[in-house]
Design a binder for these strands. Structure first.
Lengths: 118, 118
DNA sequence: CAGTATCCGTTGCGATACTG
DNA sequence: CAGTATCGCAACGGATACTG
């Protein structure tokens, strides 16, 4: 697993919850996964979908997601280079979580502007 | 909102997802919320439920959750001091997310030991 | 196109000790 | 009991420039 900001195995029932978010925290991971729900994407496509991400961070986050088995990375030996990223079955199994997050966000964060009604 | 590690308003549809996890990242927030699903807890009770958390971090995380409107903090003017933490309606609305996380964790992380089957 | 390399500020977070 | 104060370091993550 990729480093793991979140410690695991330190609490009885909350442990699974902790470990699960541990995989999707990191500044860009959740959005990346969310976009991949719609299908395979190339490096540059993800960059365009997430304008503020730098190549360094995008590579970093993609590698961690790959290490954790959530996405697959396919390199095509062509010029110019082409690399496809897609959800693995494990990553796809995250869909309910991602959708729950999306539903919650849409419902409770103002669509534009302030985060929530407090 | 509490600082916000996760930037918002920088991507079109993934934005809500990002903002939503932004509220539950932080090393201990998700477990705290998860435990609060079962009902009101006192400071010391949370400490006991999450053995590895230091008072400093627990206070920190609780304050951020409070700032974000996810939990309520009730101080009783008694000796010895007593402070209750409980989910706000907004926090309670996170239940589907927390449950999705829990379900995923239980299903895909070995119950004891290694994180996932890869 | 799909990355790497380097530099460097910021923040997260643990340890420890003290207090109303 | 429920915190606060101070210290310190490592990880996170942005900017910029370079490459197969």
């Amino acid at each position: 697993m990729a480093k793991a900001r979140h410690s695991r195995f330190d609490c009885a029932p909350g442990c699974a919850v902790e470990a699960a978010i541990g995989l999707i925290d990191g500044k860009w991971k959740s959005i990346i996964l969310y976009h991949l729900l719609d299908g395979t994407l190339r490096f540059g496509e993800i960059r365009r979908l997430i304008p503020n991400v730098t190549p360094r961070m995008l590579t970093n986050q993609l590698r961690e997601l790959e290490e954790d088995g959530l996405i697959t990375r396919t390199v095509f030996a062509v010029v110019p280079p082409r690399v496809d990223y897609a959800l693995s079955p494990l990553g796809r199994s995250m869909e309910p979580v991602l959708q729950a997050l999306k539903v919650w966000g849409d419902a409770h964060l103002g669509l534009y502007g302030k985060p929530h009604a407090a």
